[in-house]
């Protein structure tokens, strides 16, 4: 784990408010390329808020105010990128599968189409590659043009991942992607994350500490809007420096 990789996203002195409530307090951290970074902490600690700031989904919240800056590929994340371009490069998988009420094919092709790809052959290829990447091709190849909502929750979530991969992002944000799934589906997704990190960087919010320990290279522990500790996952789980981290991972609160 000690190889020198470059930072893909940096968070610099970020404070974030929802109205009068301060959800993030002076966050500084760097996400490394091709790492899986897990963000853990009790509910309301700010980890999901930080995740949503990375592809500017917080823009949808009127009362949200952010100070400090984010850097992505060396450029300012807010001012340096067009918002649709940014979200294309930094994809997101949500907590609950949120496929659109259309066919599997149309779901996966949605992003590429939104970015102007029209040729059927090109779309066919993207859909196939993405579904293969998300390890759901075999289960879906015979029913690509049937409604995506007829599948199980776990299959839907993998199609959500395929849909996010179809626009070829550099970073994939995952907001508790397995919290609504059964253990076997969770296993599939965890294997998938392991596979995907070869090609992209993954930042995952999870409530499941075993999951963080299993799949991530780095782990960040948040508490009440502060980043308490951020280090290699094996260190966080075997020898945390901060007492609060120790208490949390040993299950004393949370």
């Amino acid at each position: 784990m000690n190889q020198e990789t470059k930072d893909i996203i940096s968070v610099n002195n970020v404070d974030l408010w929802y109205g009068p409530f301060q959800a993030l307090k002076n966050i500084n951290m760097n996400f490394k390329e091709n790492d899986v970074t897990a963000m853990i902490g009790p509910s309301g600690c700010g980890k999901s808020t930080l995740l949503k700031s990375l592809n500017r989904m917080n823009d949808l919240v009127d009362s949200c105010k952010i100070t400090g800056s984010f850097t992505f590929n060396g450029k300012d994340l807010t001012k340096g990128y067009d918002i649709t371009d940014l979200r294309k490069r930094i994809g997101m998988v949500f907590q609950k599968p949120n496929l659109f009420p259309m066919s599997i094919y149309d779901n996966v092709a949605y992003g590429p189409r939104a970015h102007g790809i029209r040729k059927k052959r090109e779309l066919d290829e993207i859909v196939e590659t993405s579904l293969k990447q998300a390890a759901i091709w075999n289960e879906t190849k015979d029913r690509l043009h049937k409604s995506a909502l007829g599948l199980s929750g776990g299959q839907q979530q993998r199609i959500c991942i395929a849909r996010a991969l179809a626009v070829k992002p550099q970073v994939l944000l995952m907001d508790e992607p397995t919290s609504a799934l059964d253990p076997i589906s969770t296993q599939y997704i965890e294997d998938l994350i392991e596979e995907l990190k070869k090609d992209l960087s993954i930042i995952i919010v999870t409530h499941n500490m075993q999951q963080a320990a299993r799949i991530s290279d780095k782990t960040a522990f948040f508490l009440l809007g502060e980043l308490i500790e951020f280090d290699n996952t094996d260190l966080i789980f075997t020898n945390p420096k901060d007492q609060r981290t120790r208490d949390y991972i040993t299950g004393r609160f949370g």
């Binding site: 989904m57 949500f94 992003g111 939104a114």
Partner: peptide, 25 residues
């Protein structure tokens, strides 16, 4: 709301999210 967020999360513009996701849905 997840349809709308999902579309935006894929880099769709607001118009695309509304006219290609919300209205068909």
């Amino acid at each position: 709301e997840s349809y709308y967020e999902g579309a935006l999360g894929l880099g769709a513009t607001k118009e695309q999210a509304v006219f290609k996701t919300m209205i068909p849905a």
